[in-house]
């Protein structure tokens, strides 16, 4: 199978590689780049655990090919803060509201919420809840995530 050159900006760093055309962005990030924050939950675009930002838009990296990311800007959960000692405000809210248990789905929730929180006009709670219905969590019953949305949109009721 022929290989294709791909390069893009990942969390502020320029990266490149040779990939098969069929290589998903998720597999490229996880296996080739070692960026294991996005997770493979279903590999058919339903669960949302693989969500990353491409050009600021939340996308399912299991449904996008690595070659399609060529020349673009990609952000993953690893890029939201400087590392485990420093949390992005939304990550901090997740911690305070016990919005995660096993944490496998969490990077996807975070990336979609970050994209929503950056967008203008900023969405209200109902819109955020609707958007997050594309993310599955099996541990928490979504109670903490709903509280996070409440706090993020306190000024937008």
């Amino acid at each position: 199978m022929s290989l294709h050159f791909v390069e893009f900006e990942l969390n502020g760093c320029q990266i490149d590689g040779m990939v098969e055309a069929r290589r998903t962005l998720l597999d490229f990030l996880r296996c080739d780049v070692g960026c294991t924050g996005p997770h493979a939950g279903c590999e058919h675009g339903v669960c949302g655990a693989c969500t990353v930002l491409v050009e600021g838009q939340a996308v399912r990296s299991c449904l996008m090919l690595a070659v399609q990311a060529n020349g673009k800007t990609v952000e993953t959960v690893e890029g939201l803060s400087g590392g485990p000692k420093e949390l992005h405000p939304i990550q901090q809210l997740f911690r305070e509201e016990f919005a995660l248990q096993c944490g496998f789905c969490t990077p996807g929730f975070l990336m979609t919420l970050v994209a929503l929180d950056r967008s203008e006009p900023r969405p209200n709670a109902a819109e955020m809840r609707e958007a997050l219905s594309g993310h599955l969590c099996r541990c928490t019953g979504y109670q903490g995530v709903l509280r996070v949305i409440d706090r993020l949109t306190e000024d937008r009721k």
Binding site: E78, C102, T106
Partner: peptide
């Protein structure tokens, strides 16, 4: 007490080690 979890920092920042990692 509702003490924040010790495991959360790594899980929230994509630094967990799940089996496929």
């Amino acid at each position: 007490k509702r003490i924040q979890r010790k495991e959360d920092r790594r899980l929230l920042t994509g630094r967990g080690t799940y089996i496929d990692d």
